[in-house]
Nucleic acid binder design. Sequence first.
DNA 1: CGGCTGGGAGAACGGTCGTTCTCTCAGTGG
DNA 2: CCACTGAGAGAACGACCGTTCTCCCAGCCG
Lengths: 189, 189
Amino acid sequence: MLDDASARAAVVAAADRLFYAQGVQSVGMDAVRNEAGVSLKRIYALFPSKDDLVVAVLRHRTRRWDEGIASAAADAVTPRERLLAVFDFLDAWFREDGFRGCAFINSFGELGATSPGVADAVREHKESFQRYACDLAAEAGLPDDVALQVVLLAEGAQTTAAITQDLEVARRARRAAERILDVPTPAAA
Amino acid sequence: MLDDASARAAVVAAADRLFYAQGVQSVGMDAVRNEAGVSLKRIYALFPSKDDLVVAVLRHRTRRWDEGIASAAADAVTPRERLLAVFDFLDAWFREDGFRGCAFINSFGELGATSPGVADAVREHKESFQRYACDLAAEAGLPDDVALQVVLLAEGAQTTAAITQDLEVARRARRAAERILDVPTPAAA
DNA sequence: CGGCTGGGAGAACGGTCGTTCTCTCAGTGG
DNA sequence: CCACTGAGAGAACGACCGTTCTCCCAGCCG
């Protein structure tokens, strides 16, 4: 038998794959059970309800997102380049098989109105990303407003790439971000 | 009794309100029946399935969107201002009670993977908006790439406004669009 | 006025989903 | 070897949903 931590991880990973590919409400708990190889009894011992499982999946995605942008930024030397590295991370992600947009945006649209837990998890994720961008911009001597403009581009790139399947989107968003960052900001510095 | 056209319109309007507020799968056909005041038998005579109703709702939303951005652009004199008017339209929309993001993005996340009809309707809507932006940009002597960068801002603004409830988002997106449009484009004109 | 059509209301049906329960059995302590 | 605990597998349960069907009555034609 798996210990609790391994079972939890297997269930979250399985649910993540299924929810992301098909939408949360299209996936029954039986499907999660089959994909994870963990009995329903065990799943319900680890997560009191499907809603809690969805929230756990989102928290797990937040960790993977944070690691992804940190790793993409690792090679960059200036804060400006670390900010732009977000778009390189997006570019690689958009090219993955089965890319279907931002799981947080998708979950918010599907469940945000009916599940406060999901809405909170999504909000916290987006706020954390905004803070990350603002911190980098501050290092570069740029105001929050510019950082948040770049964040808008990243968000728009994710939904647009999902819907249009256009592989150019991330590069285009990066060019737009460069344009925004390169405008001289009179009030800053 | 209502004629077919009026019944259709009532059902689509009712379904639109409910689907947008709660997500499609959280709304049963009984709820649509009650909201529209049209019997289930009649609804199924007008729409073969719930899926067809969802598509009809999205097509209706496309018409309203097109009218909205056209009306916001009506007062503008230059193509550049007509393009930026999109963000004034978004600003007014984000301030409405019950604003919950872009219905197309929400529907795509929830149903795009399981309903080809929904996926197509969403794709067509987004492509139509991209074409609108490219046409205006062309009038202003700007390349498609710049227009599509502005579109990314509009898309990002919609999801960000929905999740963060920040009323500043549309104005910030507009400022970003101005920055992008004001960069001299060496290859153009 | 009386039979008929056609549409409204909502019950009914088959299926599915989230959640719980039962049955079975492997592994352990005496 | 035997009683016992605890976990797995999956049946079962109650609720709900999309769709269809039945019943009933209003309004028209003879």
